[in-house]
């Protein structure tokens, strides 16, 4: 779907992207992660042809990006807005026609989406007369109304109230089910775990990791096990720092090069092992760990 190779972009006094390679397969929700200023927005702007890369290539469906591809992409920027004094309907027609829809096609699509998101009765209101939540729905419609095959959402949930965030989340999943590829740029790791199939992380202009969520988590597991021992037959070593939870003594233990089964059999000598589970890091932990790690480089 989207293939990015050796992408470089520098501004006057800093490097925004350095040799970034990225592959986004069709029909996935792809999480683009990274702290502020990492280069995410620059990358997104290049894909949207707002700015041009210094070198490297961006291919959509196997072809180098061209102005005609604007129609295939839907973009919801992090900082976004609508014309306050313009009516909902006129505004949506304007944005969809700018994306290349014909007037009649635009009208059909807009009608469909206004009804779907339950704001059809507001179509003749100006944006300034709408509640924030409704304006956000209008904004979302303006992003998807031309039925893009690639949807780029930059912090789509920021500023949404929980109810609307849920609606948008479901719409994203529905679009994905229909074959739309979604790039989700966000800080909110819980939405990454919920929505994303694949992720890539950018920090300080470079891509520092990518893969499916499962792969990423597996590669970052700290090889530490959570252990619970009930009815200990002998004293547990103090360095394990065991805590009594009421039923069992619980603590964490690194593998230290042993196989999990070996560790387990060693533990069994101390009593009844009621808990033995590998610690899987959350995306948030991986994110923070990675950013910190590269800060020390």
């Amino acid at each position: 779907m989207l293939q990015i190779a050796q992408l470089n972009k520098s501004y006057e006094n800093h490097q925004a992207l350095t040799e970034v390679d990225l592959f986004v397969p069709k029909g996935v929700v792809f999480g683009l992660l990274g702290p502020n200023g990492a280069g995410k927005t620059t990358l997104i702007r290049i894909v949207n042809q707002i700015i041009e890369q210094d070198s490297g290539s961006v291919e959509l469906d196997g072809k180098v990006l061209s102005p005609d591809d604007i129609r295939k992409i839907g973009y919801l920027p992090e900082e976004r807005g609508l014309y306050k004094k313009m009516k909902v309907w006129d505004q949506l027609v304007y944005f969809s026609r700018l994306k290349g829809l014909s007037e009649s096609e635009a009208k059909i699509q807009i009608k469909h989406w206004l009804e779907k998101l339950d704001i059809a009765t507001w179509k003749d209101k100006k944006i300034e007369d709408l509640s924030k939540g409704m304006a956000q729905k209008v904004q979302f419609i303006s992003t998807i109304v031309h039925r893009p095959s690639l949807l780029i959402l930059d912090e789509p949930f920021s500023g949404f109230d929980p109810v609307n965030a849920e609606i948008i989340k479901n719409e994203i999943l529905e679009l994905k089910a229909k074959g739309t590829t979604v790039i989700l740029s966000t800080h909110r790791m819980e939405s990454v775990e919920l929505l994303c199939d694949q992720v890539a992380m950018i920090n300080k202009s470079r891509k520092i990791l990518d893969g499916t969520i499962r792969e990423v988590k597996r590669s970052f597991r700290p090889e530490v096990f959570q252990v619970g021992i009930a009815n200990p037959t002998q004293d547990l070593p103090k360095e394990w720092v065991p805590k009594f939870s009421g039923d069992a003594w619980e603590f964490t233990l690194p593998l230290s090069g042993k196989a999990p089964n070996q560790l387990l059999s060693e533990l069994m000598e101390y009593g009844d092992v009621v808990l033995f589970r590998e610690q899987i890091p959350s995306m948030e932990e991986i994110f923070i760990h990675q950013v910190k790690a590269s800060a020390h480089e």
Binding site: Q49, I70, Y75, P77, R80, G81, L82
Partner: peptide
């Protein structure tokens, strides 16, 4: 109002 980012895309 940041409409411009949407427009220039």
């Amino acid at each position: 109002t940041r409409i411009v980012e949407i427009l220039v895309s």
